[in-house]
Design a protein around this nucleic acid. Sequence first.
DNA 1: TTACAATTGTTAACACATTCACATAGTGCT
DNA 2: AGCACTATGTGAATGTGTTAACAATTGTAA
Lengths: 222, 222
Amino acid sequence: MSEEKENMQTAGKDIPRATARRLPIYYRYLKILLDSGVTRISSNELSKAVKFDAATIRRDFSYFGALGKRGYGYDVKELMEFFGDILNQDNLASVALIGVGNLGQALLNFNFHQSSNARISAAFDVNPEIVNTIQSGVPIYSTDDLEKQIQDQRIEVAILTVPAEVAQQTAKRLANAGIQGILNFTPLRLDVPKEVRVQNVDLTNELQILLYFINNFEKDEN
Amino acid sequence: MSEEKENMQTAGKDIPRATARRLPIYYRYLKILLDSGVTRISSNELSKAVKFDAATIRRDFSYFGALGKRGYGYDVKELMEFFGDILNQDNLASVALIGVGNLGQALLNFNFHQSSNARISAAFDVNPEIVNTIQSGVPIYSTDDLEKQIQDQRIEVAILTVPAEVAQQTAKRLANAGIQGILNFTPLRLDVPKEVRVQNVDLTNELQILLYFINNFEKDEN
DNA sequence: TTACAATTGTTAACACATTCACATAGTGCT
DNA sequence: AGCACTATGTGAATGTGTTAACAATTGTAA
């Protein structure tokens, strides 16, 4: 297959990864600002809220064009709507949750929908006691029906919260079923075809990193 | 060579952040390898498992001295023990969980202890129905007792899973109580004194980033 | 013992990310 | 309308992270 790396001008330009990771954070704060009646904001004020350097914020915004006004700042509503478009906020994404254990259960309750353009529309587990029930408004299917449901419901993203032992084989099935992205909560580094994007969320790791920094740097920057 | 121990003790300051973030991942895989009887490994083999470039792995290891042998690779047991020391694996850290809601509950069950040197030894909540009970072996205290318990139990790290509305004020109390690190699951960017380290885990964000990249046909790691 | 294959440790180049610093352009006051 | 501010957008400098490439060194086999 030919990879169309140049063709991604669709919604944004060639946005640096570090900038992309900050977009949802900007978006969230802009929404808060708008809700509390703030109509304009400067990069310096925003900097205090989101804790990124003001120059970083201005540079980030500038990748999308000249969104501000010199001597004035940025119009909150305008900016928020702009980022809303980039983040596809008017388009609800259906997400599958694979593995309804402790963490899976919590994520079902978590209600991503409230704070993002995504919604868990199907969950899967092997436990016959919960299969075919509805938890937090989400139907639990048997893992046997993984491929069928993903295709029927046109689900593009999966949240993987299965035990480590079955993580790799499940990821393979997800990839075969046409999933485009996996939010991976297992500690394994998944092997997937290159067209599938994996975003790792490794809770044990985050805690260990925090402990490492505390033990090794008495005081330092964030 | 013979000053390996010294390197380990003093290395902290010079280790790049990016390297530090990979240490727990190396450690985990080395443990898996050791458990399955593997005694030696090359940077290339390890690269296939953890999905970092082999040169990156060698560079990471080299910050701690010459841990391998040319033409041979790395001794799994030696390496694992070395990283175990760096990550303070023989020293169990007591962690407080603040906020026993959906996510907090899941993290209580999660049992960090099994896969790391940390253990949740106290949890806090405002809900009188669960205060003074024990959940997953962890006592739930009233949030009123936050400062007292943290100081009595010499807890240095807190996992913050409270509602966003009270996140900042709780963080302030944690900082005042002498907490050194916060694993922040709330969507807020906390304001804390510079000696307190914050590690943000923003679940909605991770999902949004994944969706953004999928929608914009890009492909890269983490 | 010597030769060969394997694999490290590291230099130098590159790539990505952040920040400084300021010309520029627009705001808002009088 | 003019002037003093303000805050953007960005070139240049700096900082951080990754990777190609290979000399150096060791294990292993004959």
